[in-house]
């Protein structure tokens, strides 16, 4: 019966899960060349967002968005008093984190957002109806809806696909392929995590004591959203890179919110019953 329905509706079984793949972005190796940003836009044929000088170091694209799926930050860090002591220029290629517990995926009412066989979070463009709920759900401000009146895939949600099409063909994502310093590494997530731990130990041993990993299974930031399939080696506190200290998963408080709403609703129902009770008035 179910099989007949599946055949009738042309429903295919989802591909069997494979070993999860992801990105390890080592910001200590990033040179800010933005090759990842361009390679991503070229492979995915994303339009440019506009031509305006931001004045914020060499970052003129600002943030991730519907048509910017890799974005390189340029943090100019120096003492506020113009002394050049301890000054440094941090570069970081940001991307969708492909969270183990993805807020966007949970919020999606249509099932357009799915977990792929590679462990990544993917927007099915033929399903998304542009409800926009994934946009405020994401704790990292990654996913966005293309403008309804725009020329690019108007009114639907977009973000990094972890180059699902390239992975299908056994290729690594375009950004990792283009990265000249291996700041962006693509691979089996467990192997990358092991590699990251070694790299962190190495950097700490060399005196880079402010280095830390962001998005590992054991990190505090994994408390709600789980480990990140695109995780980072950072050289300062996450907030320096606009990353939340403990990214929130909306689902975690949802039962309480419903309960509070229900209590108010029941109280009102009770008041109504009393108000119209035959003896009242």
């Amino acid at each position: 019966m179910i099989d007949a329905y599946r055949r009738f509706m042309n429903i295919e079984a989802p591909p069997a899960p494979q070993r999860p793949k992801g990105f390890f972005t080592d910001t200590s190796l990033c040179i800010g060349c933005k090759a990842c940003e361009v390679a991503c836009k070229q492979w995915n044929q994303l339009p440019a967002d506009g031509n305006e000088l931001s004045g914020n170091s060499y970052d003129n694209t600002g943030a991730l968005g519907a048509t910017t799926w890799r974005h390189v930050q340029f943090v100019e860090q120096a003492k506020a008093n113009n002394s050049r002591v301890g000054q440094r220029w941090l570069m970081m290629s940001d991307v969708c984190k492909h969270c183990a517990n993805a807020a966007c995926l949970e919020a999606c009412p249509t099932g357009a957002l799915v977990r792929t066989e590679f462990g990544s979070v993917y927007v099915q463009q033929d399903i998304c109806n542009g409800c926009g709920y994934c946009v405020p759900a994401c704790p990292f401000g990654v996913i966005d809806r293309a403008p309804k009146d725009g020329h690019f895939e108007a009114g639907r949600a977009h973000k990094c696909t972890l180059c699902y099409d390239r992975q299908k063909d056994g290729l690594e994502p375009a950004c990792a392929k283009a990265c000249p310093t291996d700041s962006i590494q693509f691979g089996d997530i467990e192997e990358l995590q092991a590699k990251a731990r070694r790299r962190l130990a190495d950097l700490r041993a060399r005196g880079e004591t402010s280095a830390r990993l962001y998005g590992m299974p054991e990190s505090t930031e994994a408390a709600e959203v789980g480990h990140l399939n695109a995780f980072f080696l950072l050289l300062d506190r996450p907030e320096v890179y606009n990353l939340p200290e403990v990214p929130r998963l909306p689902r975690k408080t949802m039962a309480q919110r419903y309960a509070i709403s229900a209590v108010v609703g029941l109280a009102f129902a009770a008041l109504s019953a009393v108000a119209f009770g035959r003896r009242s008035g």
């Binding site: 933005k34 440019a48 305006e52 060499y58 003129n60």
Partner: peptide, 26 residues
């Protein structure tokens, strides 16, 4: 030079992907 543009820019300034990265003389 900056990485995003190539020499006098006469080629790279025609690419929207490069232009948005370094859009104005400064």
């Amino acid at each position: 030079r900056v990485t995003e543009q190539y020499t006098s820019g006469s080629m790279s300034r025609w690419s929207s992907w490069l232009s948005e990265l370094m859009p104005e003389m400064f």
